[in-house]
Each structure stands twice: as C-alpha cells, then as structure tokens.
Simulated scan of single mutants.
Amino acid sequence: MESYVRQLYPEIAKQRPNWRLVALVSQETNLDLISWFPGEIVQMKIQNKSPFRWAFGEIISVNRFAKKIEANLIHSPANIGPIWGRTAVVLTLQDLLSFEKPQLFGQLTGVFLRTLIRMSANHAKSILTISQFSKLSIEKHLSPTKKKIKVSELAGGRVSNTPKKDNFSNQNRAKAQLLSGGNRLPHKNFEKLIQSLALIPEPERPLLVITGGSDNDPLAKLVTELALESYVELKSWIPQEQIEELYADSTIYVFPTLFEGFGLPILEAMSRGCPVICSDIPVLREVGGEAAIYVDTNSPAELAKVITQTLRDTSTLDVLASRGIQRASEFTWERTAEKTITVFEECLPNQEFGLLRNEGH
C-alpha cells in the first residue's frame, strides 16, 4: 500500500494542480517519512497500534473531519473507509485476503475485518481495485457492489540511474544472488524458498537476500535449522537507495507468494531489468505476462530445479531481463492516476471546480 499512495498522489497533484489534497494520518506517523505528500498533512488523534483502533479511525473519525473541512471527496486507499456520512467516498480494495485466506486470521479478527470491508464497500460511491483478479474476487465476495468496481493497475516506477541488466553472459559474478522481499505473513511462502535453496548443491547454490523482516525475524530459525547462515541474509525494511543496490547486485528476483492483489514486486524487479521467477498463480500471470518464469512454489524441489536451470542459462536471463523491461513499461503511474482521477471526477459534486480532500495513511 505504501508504494501505491507514494506514487499515486504526487501524480494526481501533477495532473490536477488545482485540487487541494489533505492526508489524514495517525499519531504515530513520522511526518518526515511522508514529506513526499503533495498537500496538507493532518495528524489525527488516532493510534495505529492495533487494527481495531485503526479501523475505528477509518470508519468514524475520517468522516467527521471531512465534514468539518467541507471536503468534496474522501479516498480511502487501504480496504477500509467511512461507513456513514454525506461526503462521497472512493474506496480502494487492494485485495480480499481476509475473504480468500480466512485461515490466516484469528476468528474474531477475520470476522471483524470482513464485516468492516463489507460495510465500507456498501457505503462507498465507487470502488477502485488494482487487478482484474481482485475485481473478480470482489465480485465473488461482495456481489452487490459489482456496478461500482473500476480497475486501476499499479506500476513498477521509473529508475533512471539503474543500468539495465540485459547481458548476463558478459557479467563476471563471483556468486549468483537471489532477491526476494515482503512481510512475513504465511502466504508470502518464504519458508519454501529457503527450503528450495537447501536442495541446490553447494557448488551452484546462490546467495539469497530477503527484505521486509524485523529484528526478530521468524525465518531465522529455519535458516539455522538448514545450516544456511552463509547463504541467506534476512533484512528488515530498508531505504530505497539500498533496494536499488540489491536489484543491481541480484541475478534473479524470486517471488514465492501464494496470494496477492496485484504482485507489484515482480513489476518493480522487471523495471530494473532483474529477471523474475514467481508463483504460478493467476494474478501474477496477469501482471507478468510472458516476462517471467512461473513455477509451483509449494514444491521446494520444483523451485530449486527452476532456479538452478535458470542460473545456468545466461541466454534465458538475458531474454527475461529484456522482456521484463518491456513488460514493466506497459504499466505507468501516469495511467494509474488518469484512471483514478476519472473515478474521482465521476464522484465529485462539482467537476469544474475539482476540489479534492484526500485521506491516506
């Protein structure tokens, strides 16, 4: 979600400079980290420490503030939004993970989230989502909202200073490196990726870097059990500059996820010329097209086989890098903003004036 708002709102401001944008954020938000926002930033008296408090803020406090400043429109970018009030709401449903994978949530939390999402979707004047896959999921679980759903795909971003890695046969690498990243929720499936690494013979075994963890990374235990400490580096969330260095140093980006609303990481890797191996699931095929290698990531043996074969074949790496760059160029944040603005303007009471009061975290 962070990439979504960080890229989308500045582009909206560029295309509609007469709109006034206001971001509502929680008390804990470090304002320096959202200095990119192209408008006013208001810290609400809402704590983000628990999902219940955050949800309360989304459904109650946002609408009250919108009424106070006479906002024309509220955009809720993270699945939950106001469930009452006269101010028009555009709700972005990134995915319906709590519906599609209810086993990942505690019973009470799952019921709570699903109820709030249903209520938010029913109240919203229009719903945005980020892929055709997610649109179908929403139609399946929230069927009354079919007529309001519009798709606005994400994009991989622009990286002007990163060299395109489209000639792997000429690279002199002491050791191949795999890159992956994401939170440590079970559906991200990093355990199978680590297990696959252990199945690759040592002479051909690449290094593996997984970003997005924490100080007490739950993957560390498995790395130790498989004696892979010399091959696996677990990193927390890191600055963008370091991410770019990792892309430049990595031979393949591996994305073993079992569920996504879009699959932005593979598009971001492709935009840097980094070949992609990912899970064979519908949404990743929608995003990656013919520019990735798809594999059953539930099978460590199959994943290890595909990684090994791909690392051996530099011509395949060259083709994947070239196709990836082309594929990523088909998705732009300009187009994402254009589609989003179209939905906003359909909901705005005065399209000529175009005042937008925006909500985001």
Rank of each mutant, 00 (worst) to 15 (best):
S3D: 13
R6N: 06
L8S: 02
P10F: 05
Q15H: 13
P17Y: 14
L21R: 06
V22H: 07
Q27D: 14
Q27H: 13
N30Q: 14
L31S: 06
D32C: 05
L33F: 02
S35T: 12
W36T: 08
F37G: 07
G39N: 09
E40Q: 15
F52H: 09
A55D: 00
F56Q: 12
E58K: 01
A66C: 10
H75A: 07
H75Y: 07
N79T: 00
I83C: 02
R86T: 09
L93N: 00
L93P: 00
L96T: 12
E100F: 09
P102W: 00
Q103S: 13
G106V: 00
Q107S: 03
T109K: 10
G110A: 09
G110D: 02
L116T: 00
R118P: 02
M119A: 12
A121W: 03
N122M: 06
H123W: 02
H123P: 01
L128A: 04
T129Y: 00
E139N: 12
K140N: 15
H141G: 02
H141N: 07
P144K: 11
K146N: 05
K147H: 11
K148S: 05
K148N: 03
K148H: 04
A155E: 11
G156C: 10
K164R: 11
N167T: 08
F168N: 15
S169F: 11
N170M: 14
R173L: 12
K175C: 05
L178M: 03
L179T: 11
G181A: 10
N183D: 15
R184P: 03
R184Y: 11
P186S: 15
N189M: 12
I194T: 13
Q195E: 13
I200Y: 04
P206T: 03
L207T: 10
L207N: 14
T211P: 01
G212I: 04
P218L: 13
K221I: 12
V223F: 07
V223W: 08
A227L: 04
L228R: 05
E229W: 01
S230F: 04
V232A: 05
E233P: 01
Q240A: 08
Q240P: 01
Q240G: 09
E244Q: 14
Y247H: 15
D249F: 13
D249G: 14
T257W: 00
F259L: 06
F259R: 00
E260Q: 05
G263I: 01
L264H: 07
I266D: 11
I266E: 09
E268L: 04
G273M: 03
I277D: 00
C278L: 02
C278H: 04
P282D: 14
V287S: 03
G288Y: 04
G289P: 08
V295R: 02
N298Y: 04
L303T: 03
A304G: 06
V306E: 13
T308L: 10
D313N: 14
L317E: 01
D318N: 15
D318L: 10
A328V: 05
E330H: 10
T332L: 04
A337R: 09
T342A: 15
T342C: 08
F344S: 11
E345K: 12
E352P: 00
L355R: 09
L355H: 08
N358R: 05
